[in-house]
């Protein structure tokens, strides 16, 4: 059986000949906007946090497994590559956290006006940067 979306792509032209319908322009023709950018970054950071969940689990499993396993994972996290990866995950976490609040507000029917939506988008980006920098400052300077 033909995929229904494939089947709908076929039409007849004015001469009655079967043709594939033309596609409308896709994402690349649009200027990036804060609305589309914050939306796709919500997805990207969500998927990235899925990879972060693997590291989160590795951290807990190594702690449960024993001293040698835990010292290995702690050394990996403390290495340069480990710190860069962890930095990326904090950025993704704080972004998904802040933009998630924005999504929950939309689900409650609030903040749909365009100026509000643009302002909350900028607020999310700013808050993400502030929270990420604050986290790493505390991590390095305190204790």
């Amino acid at each position: 059986m033909k995929d229904v979306r494939e089947a709908l792509m076929v039409g007849r032209n004015s001469e009655g000949k079967l043709v594939r319908r033309p596609l409308s322009p896709h994402l690349q023709v649009y200027k990036p906007q804060i609305s589309s950018a914050t939306s796709i970054f919500h997805r990207i950071t969500g998927v990235a946090l899925g990879a972060g969940a693997v590291l989160f689990t590795a951290w807990l499993v190594c702690a449960a497994a024993g001293d040698s396993a835990f010292s290995v994972i702690q050394a990996i996290f403390a290495s340069w590559i480990g710190l860069i990866v962890l930095f990326g995950f904090t950025l993704a976490l704080f972004y998904h956290f802040c933009n998630g609040i924005r999504h929950l507000a939309w689900d409650a029917g609030k903040g749909f006006e365009l100026p509000d939506m643009h302002r909350s988008g900028r607020l999310v980006i700013g808050a993400t940067l502030v929270l990420t920098v604050a986290f790493w400052l505390i991590a390095f300077l305190v204790g």
Binding site: D67, F70, S71, Q74, L93, F97, F135, A139, G143
Partner: peptide
């Protein structure tokens, strides 16, 4: 649920930073 829980997790990570087993 993840709003308070992830803040708690971030706090835990800061408390457990460099901690031994």
């Amino acid at each position: 649920a993840l709003l308070p829980l992830s803040l708690y997790f971030v706090l835990s990570v800061l408390l457990l930073k460099g901690a031994g087993r």
